[in-house]
Design a protein around this nucleic acid. Sequence first.
DNA 1: AACGTAACCTACCGCTCAACAGGTAACCGG
DNA 2: CCGGTTACCTGTTGAGCGGTAGGTTACGTT
Lengths: 196, 196
Amino acid sequence: MGRARSEERRADILRAALEVIAERGYRGASLGAVAERVGLTQQGLLHYFPTKETLLVAVLEERDRWDTSGGRGREGWRLDLIDSLVEYNAMRPGIVQTFSALLGESVTDGHPAREFFTERYAQVRAEMAKVLRLEFGERLPGGLTPERAAPLLTAVMDGLQYQWLLDPEAVDMPAAFRDFVALLTGRVTAEDHSDK
Amino acid sequence: MGRARSEERRADILRAALEVIAERGYRGASLGAVAERVGLTQQGLLHYFPTKETLLVAVLEERDRWDTSGGRGREGWRLDLIDSLVEYNAMRPGIVQTFSALLGESVTDGHPAREFFTERYAQVRAEMAKVLRLEFGERLPGGLTPERAAPLLTAVMDGLQYQWLLDPEAVDMPAAFRDFVALLTGRVTAEDHSDK
DNA sequence: AACGTAACCTACCGCTCAACAGGTAACCGG
DNA sequence: CCGGTTACCTGTTGAGCGGTAGGTTACGTT
């Protein structure tokens, strides 16, 4: 079962890399720090991932696998699932931090995650538009077309994450996101959360 | 007028630092690269800013000065000015890129810009809420209170910037932002941009 | 004209980092 | 039981980094 042990190690490394990237970003993360966290030397780590970039790519791919399997069936996401995704994220600050840090870095020149995020956004926007169209048709109650609403939905998710990461007390991320969805879908928000 | 020449140099350095940070992020930016861009050695640069961090702080402070003077009078922003700010940003990809990269990095542990962004967001949210209250009172047409709308407004701005930086063709940032404002303020959006 | 200070420079240091080279020990299939 | 592959290790290298030390030049002031 050397095979199994190897796969396990790889998974451990990816988990450690996720942590270190959350703490220091990709550029700030050192292979040594990741290796140490799984009880390897830096060179031992390079046995599994021959370069730093391949390690990053593997982290990205794992995330991709994760959230293309987690919440959609073959009919894609449902709107309430998007909602609960935000709640899920609110309980996983580590993961959110990793990908927020990577997203920020990725806009710099020649960053290895740039293509990943670019394609990912295109995908996510398309997926969101599909969900919205399925649920509301060509016009959402708020008046927008699915294609116009999709980038906003995405933007709100990301933007809220940054505010929340910087100051979790200051922003109730899931509640704020629900506010936005209510706005989009025309549900009048009469409910009163304690407006801090 | 050695004084003036010195201030000019400082300004040049800050401009160069802004560029380099946009291209490589703060962690990826080297003092040498900044220095080279203004025709100095790295040590010559250190004469003006004794550490890398003081340089970053100076960049941040300049930005702060810039946008606390640019668009507000003593009564603060107006909603339409926020709108035109987005349009202004759309013409300044360099600056947007710098601050998007920094924002992303700032969520990592012990980043020197973290406090800056945390405070800045608190400020911006408060300012936004104030503007909204001034214009709409306790309830926006969309149904939200100013305090609930403010984080969303901020989130949309930031989130759209990332999508736009990664793929300017894919997102019409000012138009998308106007869509959102329309949603917030209950103006029905009948206008049809070409929904590519 | 003398002096002090601002504006640089050269030289250097210690550190960290990703990656390469080459070895060794355990394990696994035949 | 043997031969190769897998899973690591030690050793090293070369580049780049931020920062220090200390010098030199030029200019502004008195």
